[in-house]
């Protein structure tokens, strides 16, 4: 799922610059996800579903979020996996 269209256009001089940019972006993103561990997050999902949960972990392909104490419209689910495809955005206050 990594965009490769840009890299095919870049020349040999640009490649290290692009690789460095990708690495800085990725590292910052991973750190940001890690900083959310055990924090309350609000998920905005498709079909206007809004739920709150305690953030646990994300897989590295950003396909699933593992959360606890998920407040669903029909009650609390102690442990849950949320599909990232279902999510539009999520917010965390710190």
């Amino acid at each position: 799922s990594i965009a490769t269209s840009a890299s095919s256009e870049t020349n040999a001089e640009q490649l290290p610059i692009e690789q460095h940019a990708r690495s800085v972006l990725r590292e910052t993103f991973l750190r940001c996800l890690l900083s959310m561990t055990n924090k309350k997050v609000q998920f905005l999902m498709h079909e206007r579903v809004k739920v709150e949960a305690t953030f646990g972990a994300s897989d590295i392909d950003v396909l699933n979020f593992q959360v606890s104490d998920l407040h669903t419209p029909i009650g609390v689910q102690k442990e849950a996996l949320i599909r990232c495809q279902d999510v539009i955005s999520f917010t965390c206050d710190s």
Partner: peptide, 29 residues
């Protein structure tokens, strides 16, 4: 290395807590 640590952490959480997908049916395919 960062990714390996993160994936391990995720797998461990899942093994330990056995979370189930919510919602059961995906909202968006």
């Amino acid at each position: 290395a960062m990714e390996a640590a993160m994936q391990l952490n995720f797998d461990r959480h899942c093994d330990l807590k056995q979370p189930k997908y919510w919602p059961v049916i995906p909202l968006k395919l």
